[in-house]
Design a protein around this nucleic acid. Structure first.
Lengths: 156, 156
DNA sequence: AAATGTTTGACTAATATTGACTATTATACG
DNA sequence: CGTATAATAGTCAATATTAGTCAAACATTT
């Protein structure tokens, strides 16, 4: 208990704030100084403990007045289904298989027709054509995962 | 909260006025003085936050009685706006510039929050990261065009 | 030992701020 | 008139102020 590593301490500090508040906004260097660590440690903490999967949305800005903002995400009712769908997206996916996934989203009423058209447009061969089928299918998989993950949250 | 950057404050100030009014007309040096910054900072704010892409038209005059006037771009129907937006997507586009386009879609109520989250997820650096910035930006441009075109089709 | 997780810091990238110099327009003055 | 001067705004590059990335070193767990 007494010998936690710094990352855990920083995690606890941030989560404590998030208990009372929907979000926490920090200046990276200040928090680093507070805990006597290097600034990039904050990125490590965020990358390992405040991921979308863990229910957090992180935004940041550089330059003067820069910040890192961590928000609690509110999950949709369907988020478990979406989790499962994310799990099942392979590393590369054809347009046809991707279409089936989008169709499922539509059938489950997670997205409407207009939204499904946008998604189909982004996942189409025409849009993603980059010369190599392998690269195209990998990209399509990445896009599909990103889309599914974005659907896990309430829209703010 | 104590150390917000001045540019954001000035942006908010101007946008607040634009909420109630079709345009805002300022004297550059006065606003600079009001916010204790150099006059050219006003140009920076305008150049980064009141671009045509973001839906603003800026006019100015030098010399005695000079001014800077910011107008909200005139209304056009969705179809026309989407045409124009497609036209204006360059061959490669950064995440930042793409975000401005999506923000515009949201502001014009062409898309809702949920849809904008999906689009932002697909256009993010994290999703499109493929090693080369050039290729990433090109891909982002293609995706954005595909999305805009799908919306344009809907709006018919 | 190997695998996994943490810490560190050098390097990179994004954004904001500043000020010297330039350009334009209005007004005062001959 | 025409020209000088004052009163604006614009441009651009240097500098400052942040955050992000990545891989090596180090620590802990299996």
């Amino acid at each position: 208990m007494q010998n936690q590593n710094i990352s855990d301490v920083i995690e606890a500090y941030l989560k404590k704030i998030l208990e009372d508040s929907e979000q926490v906004e920090i200046r990276r260097s200040e928090v680093a100084e507070l805990f006597h660590c290097v600034p990039s440690q904050i990125n490590y903490v965020i990358k390992t403990r405040f991921t979308p999967k863990q229910g957090y949305i992180v935004q940041s800005k550089r330059g003067g007045g820069g910040y890192i903002r961590i928000q609690k995400a509110q999950f949709m009712d369907d988020h478990e289904l979406l989790d499962q769908m994310v799990e099942n997206v392979p590393a590369t996916i054809s347009q046809r298989d991707a279409l089936a996934v989008v169709q499922r989203l539509y059938d489950e009423e997670i997205i409407d027709r207009k939204t499904s058209n946008i998604i189909l447009a982004t996942l189409s061969h025409q849009t993603l054509n980059v010369g190599s089928k392998k690269i195209e299918d990998g990209l399509r998989a990445r896009l599909l995962v990103a889309i599914l993950e974005s659907l896990r949250y309430e829209s703010k």
